[in-house]
Structures are given as C-alpha cells and as structure tokens.
C-alpha cells in the first residue's frame, strides 16, 4: 500500500513537472505582454508631452484616446459601481458610463501639469492567478523637487484578448478600489438608489475642479 502511494506521488510529481514549463511560458508571455503595453503607453504619453502646448481640449482628446486604447473602460466602469451595477437599468448604465468617463478625463486633465518633468523606470512584473498581471514602476521627478512615486499597473490578460489596464495603484493606494468604495458609499447613503450616484457625478461635472 505504502509503495503504491509512493508510485502515485512520484507519478503525479512527474506530471506536475511536465506541465510546469508550459505554465511558466504562459505566465511569462502574459507578463511580457502587460509590460509591453505599459512601455508603449508611457512612450505614447511622453511623445504627446514633448509637443504639448497646454491646450486643454487637445489634452482632453489625448487622455480620451489613451483611455480608449490602453484601458479596459468597460471593466473599470462596471467595477467602479460595485454590486449596484447589476441593479442599474440599461439607461442608467449608459448614462453612468458616459459621466464616469467624463469625470475621469476631467480629473486627469485637471492634474495634467503634474505629468511634466517625470521620468518612468519600469519595475518588477508578477502574474496574479490567470486573471491579471501587476506591472511595477517608479515615476521620478527629473528636477528632484518631488519624491519618487511607486506605481503598480494592474493589467487584465485574458485569453484571446489584448492586455488592458484596469487599475493603477500609487503608493499602496488603488485608484479603482478607492473610486468604487466612494461610489458605493454615495449609493448606500441614498438608500441604494443608483440614480443618486449619477446625480452626484453630474454635480461634480457642473462644479469646476478645485485649483491647485
């Protein structure tokens, strides 16, 4: 009985070893694809910054393009509404998608000047299960006035689909989780009404961003 168990263990071990290289290759491929996506996006942004004239409309158009090209906006939008996404009507979902993207663009454009003078250094990359890859990196201020900022890009790597960013983590702070928790709080404080979040986002858009 003991010998049979040993054979079984050795057999399973061999099967595991045989399967291991294929698994590693797949994870490596996903990590390389995710890292490549971030490198391309950074190069793309740097090219825009090099010719940026400060025109707000041009910046907004560029941010919208970057979001559409490199980010999985459908997933981000759904996640940001938490469990209340399911309860929202089709019209509410459409309106929310539009408002969410507009608010996101407006926030990035409002902080656009902070992107100037930053150098990006790629960091470690690690696969998280079969769903996504985390690509690390650091932004350094070339003038040395701001401290370096560690960043993690969460990149969806689904089979048969191109990799897409769905979250950015800055110094342990996930922007998507923060937005989701804030959105859910707005809905819950209004007795679970998804419409309350839409109203709050509309009000946000109607108010100019606080200047730095």
């Amino acid at each position: 009985m003991m010998i049979r168990r040993r054979f079984l263990a050795v057999g399973l071990g061999c099967l595991g070893l045989a399967a291991l290289p294929a698994g590693i290759v797949r994870a490596d491929d996903r990590q390389a694809a995710a890292g490549g996506l971030i490198d391309t996006m950074i190069a793309d942004l740097q090219a825009f910054l090099a010719t940026d004239t400060g025109d707000v409309e041009a910046r907004a158009a560029e941010i919208d393009r970057v979001l559409g090209t490199y980010f999985d906006m459908d997933t981000i939008t759904r996640f940001s509404a938490g469990q209340y996404w399911r309860a929202a009507s089709a019209d509410q979902r459409t309106e929310y998608e539009m408002l969410f993207r507009e608010v996101l663009c407006g926030t990035i454009v409002g902080n656009f000047d902070q992107l100037n003078g930053l150098a990006y250094t790629p960091g470690a990359t690690s696969a998280k299960g079969d769903k996504f890859v985390i690509v690390g990196g650091t932004f350094t201020d070339t003038s040395g006035t701001r401290p370096p900022v560690a960043i993690n890009w969460r990149v969806l790597t689904r089979k048969g689909k191109p990799p897409r960013v769905f979250d950015i983590e800055i110094e342990n702070l996930s922007l998507l989780v923060t937005q989701k928790q804030e959105n859910v709080a707005v809905i819950r404080k209004n007795k679970g009404q998804f419409g309350a979040l839409i109203e709050a986002m509309q009000a946000r858009l109607d108010t100019p961003l606080h200047s730095k």
Partner: peptide
C-alpha cells in the same frame, strides 16, 4: 463625490499597506 468616504477608503488601504509591510518595489 464624498470626501468622508474617500478619506475612509484611503485610510484603510494605506494602513493595510503598512500592516502588510508592502514595499514600493514589490508588485
């Protein structure tokens, strides 16, 4: 949208990072 809720979220995530001893260069 809700500064109170955002503050709470930021606090919990930052605190969790400290408790987990997450460092900047570890993904």
């Amino acid at each position: 949208l809700d500064p109170y809720a955002r503050t709470r979220s930021v606090y919990y995530q930052t605190r969790l990072g400290l408790l987990e001893d997450r460092v900047a260069d570890r993904a």
